[in-house]
């Protein structure tokens, strides 16, 4: 297998760092403090169709592609 790119290594390091860091230095948020986080605007998956359109449009106009989810099918637009 090819040597993974520096970006993959950075990403894995970032994920490890974020998970390790938060375990000891961020005070856990209690369930009764979660009201604001439950708002739709604070979520990452809010509008699926809007995200779908955005991904579709940008993939056909730019060379970079990909967001937070995994791709399941392609189209003939790039």
């Amino acid at each position: 297998m090819r040597r993974p790119s520096w970006l993959v290594l950075l990403g894995l390091l970032g994920l490890l760092g974020l998970s390790g860091l938060s375990a000891c230095s961020i005070t856990p948020v209690q369930p009764w403090e979660k009201g604001l986080l439950a708002k739709k605007a604070m979520g990452f998956e809010a509008d699926r169709l809007e995200a779908g359109f955005a991904e579709h449009i940008y993939t056909s106009k730019e060379a970079a592609a990909g967001g937070a989810g995994v791709g399941a099918s392609g189209c003939g637009c790039n």
Partner: peptide, 13 residues
């Protein structure tokens, strides 16, 4: 990761 009651961070590779 939820950072505090008003902030949440997400990292995806």
């Amino acid at each position: 990761q939820v950072l505090n009651p008003r902030q949440v961070l997400q990292l995806t590779l």
